[in-house]
Design a protein around this nucleic acid. Structure first.
Lengths: 202, 202
DNA sequence: ATTTAGTTTAACCGTTTGGTTAACAAAAGT
DNA sequence: ACTTTTGTTAACCAAACGGTTAAACTAAAT
């Protein structure tokens, strides 16, 4: 069964993405990925020299896509309310389109934080301190209620990302199904910013 | 070097907890745990027959402690605002005292959701639907702003738990340190309920 | 037609890993 | 005193795993 150019490589990346995302880097095996991709295990090593490189490829492929979007949303020079809308939309939309990324990132980042963040952002993290400064300014101008900027940022990030790692528990605990979950996530693109702004507006 | 009764067992559990929590079930090795515990690898299998059982023991030990507290906080028959305070306090306090549990649970639950939740709650999940009903009632009575109960619950859970899995990214991204992080978490016991109530109160 | 370069596979290899065995030491029970 | 139970270890084993090799197949280039 000869595949046309690149077909095997794509099959590998797809399989690896799907398996790494549920089993993690350590839980997945090369054999398993090869099976899922419908190719021989040696071909994995032909295209991607070893497990680490395959993992990095899959991971960076997933992460680098939305990194500029998030960075842009966080650093843009706009009104705070508008910025909250943009950040939430960026994060939630990203997570809807790549639901495995959050659980992926949060599982691995807790194993080797510095190394992982280095690979993920390459010293180019979104400028959270700048966002914190903007919030602080709005508070001192009396435009929003007093709140610690870092708490507000944590709240926002939490509400955007957490549901996607919490999904299995939520579905079982709420006796919901995937369709309802997806619908709720779509609603959250608007609902989360409104919830935040309702809380901080004077 | 003979240890007094139970000493080895405790050393094993402590070591396993610490290693499982950062490396996950698959990333950790029995040898590693034995070394950390300062005992022979065979002794692991003497006390805990195999890796799965050791993991389960460690995990249940961590989880079962606070399960009744959470369940109680969620199902208690009190005023909604009071209940929000209780739930947030229960979750955040638990996470402060056992910071490894959230990352632990969320990493593993996404691998085998049903099985894991079964082991975790044993068919005795907190009654989230009941909480949802209470929220719905308050909305229809006009006591709080209109909001989908499930969204409110997601928001609350997110803000309580997420910071603990997000910690490494937050510390690096915010140029913070562990002390600041811990202080922020203590503040959140009160800050999160206030943030929520500010958002939903009329 | 033959070479050449790229692709794919089966079989193999060395290590690591989870787990076992058998022997030994200490305590407890008689 | 001695037997049994419990705790502990070093050495070992089989399986799984990541990775390699060498050969076969394909298709385009010469």
């Amino acid at each position: 069964m000869v595949k046309s150019k690149n077909e095997a490589e794509i099959a590998i990346l797809t399989a690896a993405k799907s398996i790494f995302s549920v089993k993690g880097k350590d839980g997945a095996t090369m054999q398993e990925i090869a099976n899922e991709a419908g190719i021989n295990k040696a071909l994995l090593h032909y295209y991607f020299r070893n497990k680490d490189l395959l993992f990095e490829e899959v991971f960076l492929d997933a992460v680098k896509k939305f990194h500029p979007i998030l960075k842009n949303a966080i650093e843009q020079e706009v009104d705070l309310y508008q910025k909250i809308h943009q950040i939430c939309e960026a994060y939630i939309t990203m997570a809807i389109d790549n639901p495995f990324v959050p659980v992926f990132v949060l599982s691995e980042v807790n194993k080797q934080p510095e190394l992982f963040i280095q690979k993920m952002f390459g010293g180019d993290l979104p400028d959270f301190p700048k966002l914190a400064a903007q919030i602080k300014r709005e508070v001192s101008l009396g435009n929003i209620k007093p709140i610690h900027p870092q708490q507000l940022i944590l709240n926002m990030m939490s509400m955007c990302v957490f549901p996607f790692v919490f999904k299995p528990i939520f579905i079982i605990g709420m006796q919901a199904d995937k369709e309802l979950f997806n619908q709720l996530m779509l609603e959250r693109i608007k609902a989360v910013p409104h919830f935040i702004i309702d809380s901080i507006k004077i």
